[in-house]
Structures are given as structure tokens and as C-alpha cells.
Amino acid sequence: MAKLENSLKNMVLSLTAITVIVGALLGYVASVTDEPIAQAAAAKQQNAIAAVVPVEGAQAGEAQKVVTANGEEAVIFPVTKDGQLVGHAVQAVSKNGFGGKITVMFGFDPEGTILGYNVLDCGGETPGLGAKMPDWFQKGAKGDVIGKNPKTNNLTVSKDEGEVDAITAATISSRAFCDAIAQAFGVLPVVEAAAEAQTSATKQAAGTSESVNEVAGE
């Protein structure tokens, strides 16, 4: 078959036809993948909740959106088992990550003790440094925060006179992580009274200049 000639009509027609066909095809694929994409996001959230509040047979309740002290949106999921409240999962954001925002899901028991955490997004953190966040603060790891309660424990990095061992060579990322804890804890419904004290504690910690005498955990 010979090539179509370069008349204006042919050019406009072929470009339009191709764009319309491709557009229609895309519309179809988009409508087909719409649901799996939403499902994948929901599954990720549900898995994160199950991971941070490790109570067997527990169910996450309806999500509640609140605004944290840093002006970002947090989502609280009450977690219940047989109608009994066993804790809360809170998805919080810290703006102070090394490469932008980090999003972490925390699980708290009804007293506010941290049951677990799951990093949903730390894409801007440096690989090998800040990106170790998903493992570094887990139970038994160097920066273990599990089982601690922001009400009684000072959950800031040791450079800020807190008791969390920062990730080696990634203090900024670690501070962001602690910030995310504070943000999440601040909006817990059961500790609203303590929240005020927490906010002032965070401000204080942020105000302290870097203490040289404090040796990092390494």
C-alpha cells in the first residue's frame, strides 16, 4: 500500500484518528484498572493497620480524618475486637523528611503505647541511610520504639536529648520519624488531654540547639 500523501486533510485526519483511537483505548483500560488500583491502595492500608495493631481477629473501624499540629492531614482508624477497643491506627505525615514528606502508620494501644509502625512512604529518603526507616525502629532493632509511650518516654533522637537512637548518619530522617510519632500521638482521642503537654514538649525539643555532648547511639 502506498503512503498517504501530505495533504492537510490527510494529516489532520490521521493525527485526529490516532489520538481518538488511543484515547478511547486508554479510557477503556483506565475504567478496567480503576477498581484494582483503588483496591490495591485499600489493601495496602488494611495490611498496614493489621501490621501495626497486631491483635488477631481485630477489625479496623471507620476512618476519621483530622488535622495534626503541623497542619497536615492524619487518618485515625479505631481498631476493635468483639466490640472492645484494642487500639488505634494513626496514619500521620511529617514534612521534615530529608527529601520531603514521609507518611507512617502507627499503632497505639488504648493507653497510647506504640504497638507497631509501618512506613507507607519515605520515597525521598536516601537509599541506605534514611530509607532504612521501615526496619530501624522496629522491635529488637537499634532504634526500637515499640512498647514505648510518648506520654512517659521522650521519643526524640538522642541528639535532641531524647531516647531514640537515630539511624546512623541520618539524623534528619530520624527526627522526621519522631516528628511523625508526635503528630500521630497528638491526635489520639484517648490522650487528648496529654496532647497539649506533648506539643509543648515537641516545641521544646525543636528549640534546643544540637547538643555536642550527647553521643549518638553508635
Partner: peptide, 21 residues
């Protein structure tokens, strides 16, 4: 498949649309 249906002068934009799709 469609190369003969596309006039020469607009072949690059057409290819780009197909690729982008």
C-alpha cells in the same frame, strides 16, 4: 502496522501519541 496510513509530515506526532498511549 499503521505506518502507511500516516502522512510523512506528521509521522513524529503520530508515533508519539501511539507510544504515549
Amino acid at each position: 502496522c499503521v505506518k502507511n496510513l500516516i502522512p510523512d509530515k506528521v509521522h513524529i506526532p503520530c508515533y508519539i501519541v501511539i507510544i504515549a498511549g
